[in-house]
Computed example of a mutant assay.
Amino acid sequence: MPYEDSPLPSRRMPPSLLIVDDQVLVREGLSQLLRSATLPLGSVHAVATAAEALAYARTTPPDLVLLDVDLGGDDGLALLPLLGRQAHVMVLTCLTDTATRTRAFGLGASAFVGKHEPASNMLIEVRALADRYLRGEVPPRRVGGESGAQTGASSDVRGGSNF
């Protein structure tokens, strides 16, 4: 799906994006799709584990993160308070139940998309997050700890966020 360029009053460089997913096919497919899409993105890097994500973020803090919930048995959402301090984080997962969605937004996710959804939904959300970054909007802050209190991002039934 082609995207029209939207002029944004910004002097920021295009955002860097980190993909965190334990499935190699998903990581490689997302990397290839995002690099070939007409999106305002800089570098795209992908890692498989929570430890790799934290190590990468220490040396090269990403501006945007696509984060899976289940990282080979590790809880990907536990990374949200760490990676989401400076980055807009989109949770991209097969686990789309209400409790997971609520927890993700409560921990500071900027967007939530199910892996079962069309790729165009994910691309729309990545564009929206990139645009928010380019406008200088800060990521949502963790509110209410694990209680799942909303952070201002919408968690509508479709799985996207409203802008």
Rank of each mutant, 00 (worst) to 15 (best):
Q32A: 10
V44D: 01
G84Y: 03
L34G: 02
G159H: 00
P62A: 11
G152Q: 01
R135K: 14
L41S: 03
A119V: 05
M90D: 02
A48Q: 06
S6K: 15
A37M: 03
L66S: 03
S155N: 12
L80Q: 01
G72S: 08
S110D: 02
L30V: 03
L41A: 04
R127D: 07
G73N: 13
E28W: 15
A55Y: 13
L18R: 08
D70H: 05
G42W: 00
S155C: 11
L80S: 04
G106H: 12
A46G: 03
L80C: 04
R85P: 07
P118F: 15
R12V: 10
Q86N: 12
A48D: 05
G106F: 11
S155P: 07
E125W: 10
A149W: 15
T38C: 06
P14Q: 02
Y3R: 14
G114P: 08
M122W: 11
V65S: 00
Q86K: 12
R35H: 10
L8A: 00
V89R: 07
L64S: 06
S161D: 11
R141M: 11
D75A: 03
P2H: 08
L82I: 10
D5E: 14
R27I: 01
F112C: 07
F163C: 13
S120W: 04
D5C: 09
A46L: 04
A57C: 07
G72T: 09
A109R: 01
S16V: 06
D131N: 14
R135Q: 13
R142A: 11
E4F: 06
R127H: 06
E4L: 15
F112A: 08
D97T: 05
S16L: 03
A53C: 02
S161L: 13
A87T: 03
T100N: 14
A57W: 06
S31F: 01
L41R: 05
A119E: 06
V47R: 03
A149P: 15
L18Y: 02
C94P: 12
E137F: 05
H88N: 06
L64T: 01
D21V: 02
Y56M: 04
R35W: 06
D5W: 11
S36F: 08
L18I: 15
L82E: 14
E52K: 00
R142G: 09
F112D: 02
V113P: 00
R35Y: 13
G108L: 08
V126W: 04
P61S: 07
T151F: 09
T96C: 14
A128Q: 14
R35L: 04
S43C: 10
R101C: 12
E117A: 12
T49M: 09
L34C: 07
T93D: 01
G42C: 08
F112K: 09
P9W: 06
K115V: 01
V143P: 00
G114D: 01
T96S: 14
P2Q: 09
A78C: 05
E125S: 08
P118W: 13
R142K: 09
L107H: 12
A111T: 05
I124C: 10
T151C: 15
